[in-house]
């Protein structure tokens, strides 16, 4: 049975459609990504699932519970990290964890969370004195202190430096490995690619695709490029050899460099032909397709941050 089941969700604000028949389900123990640019309906969807907003139509079940009718039961079993949440400046780290633990029937021991999230030496520090990464880790720890079965993390690494982001990703994987189903809202491609088992790509209030990040990338037949520098006297030969290979759509020169664009697995064919004909090349580079390419192909527009 899926942990979250969303069917035909619709929502509009003063005539503007925000969600247009959104349906998906989240399986136990996965990190499920909700990816899309700002305004695509990601946060609205999650807030409806959390019971913070009502949908105009459609049904939502979280662990079999209706977020509005069974709100009290639902709040016991989900943990939420909201975008832009802060704490009072003068609240100490341990006080925040101790306070939020007292809200739940079966909380986790907050001292363990203090260790797991690297906050043990900041135990008595006030919120305002924490670094950005420490604040974010505390906010995530608060989402987990109720011992939830499902955790919602909304834009969890916004404003963090690269090192802090990597560290946060590792911790989120540990949360999943401990058996918590994670719903991750993000507009960062790298984050979704790194963390998510499956991703729903949102665009203009609809879901454009749902698949694993690798599946999304593989499904895209976008044009991409490879480039190499042939030995000076071999450039013309090389271009002749590869011009008509299957999948190759264009061959251009840029100084000493040859740039080949094409679709599918043309790069393998190109390197094979060059090797067979003993054309020596250097600086060979193949642009790998990314989730960005998949996103552009799926939604027909570039990812506008």
């Amino acid at each position: 049975m899926p942990v979250i089941d969303v069917t035909d969700l619709c929502k509009s604000y003063s005539g503007r459609t925000v969600l247009d028949h959104v349906s998906f389900s989240v399986e136990p123990g996965e990190i499920f990504g909700i990816l899309g640019p700002n305004g695509a309906g990601k946060t609205t969807t999650v807030e409806i699932i959390e019971g913070l907003r009502r949908a105009d139509s459609g049904t939502v079940r979280v662990l079999g519970l209706d977020p509005i009718a069974d709100a009290a039961a639902l709040r016991e079993v989900v943990g939420v990290q909201l975008q832009h949440t802060q704490l009072p400046d003068n609240l100490k780290v341990w006080e925040a964890l101790d306070l939020y633990a007292s809200f739940y029937e079966h909380p986790r021991d907050w001292r363990e969370l203090l260790d797991e999230w690297g906050l043990a030496d900041r135990r008595d520090t006030r919120f305002a004195k924490l670094s950005g990464g420490q604040k974010q880790r505390l906010i995530i720890a608060l989402a987990l202190v109720g011992n939830p079965q499902v955790a919602f993390l909304d834009e969890l690494t916004t404003g963090l430096d690269p090192q802090a982001r990597r560290a946060t990703w590792e911790l989120v994987k540990q949360v999943r490995d401990a058996g918590v189903t994670v719903v991750l809202v993000s507009h960062f491609m790298d984050e979704v690619e790194e963390l998510c088992d499956r991703v729903a790509v949102f665009s203009d209030g609809r879901i454009a695709a749902i698949d694993s990040p690798a599946g999304l990338i593989a499904a895209v037949d976008a044009e991409h490029a490879m480039r190499f520098t042939p030995a000076p006297d071999a450039a013309a030969t090389a271009i002749d050899l590869i011009r008509d290979l299957p999948g190759v759509s264009a061959v251009t020169r840029s100084g000493a460099q040859v740039i080949v664009t094409g679709r599918g697995d043309f790069a393998t064919a190109v390197t094979a032909v060059l090797a067979r004909n003993h054309v020596l090349v250097s600086d060979l580079r193949i642009d790998t397709r990314t989730l960005d390419d998949a996103f552009v192909a799926l939604t027909g527009r570039s990812f506008d941050r």
Partner: peptide
């Protein structure tokens, strides 16, 4: 007003309290 501005009231509404 600070509690509302910081999103603390909203955050609380996702807990049993």
């Amino acid at each position: 007003a600070t509690y509302r501005e910081k999103g603390i009231l909203r955050r609380l509404s996702t807990t049993p309290v």
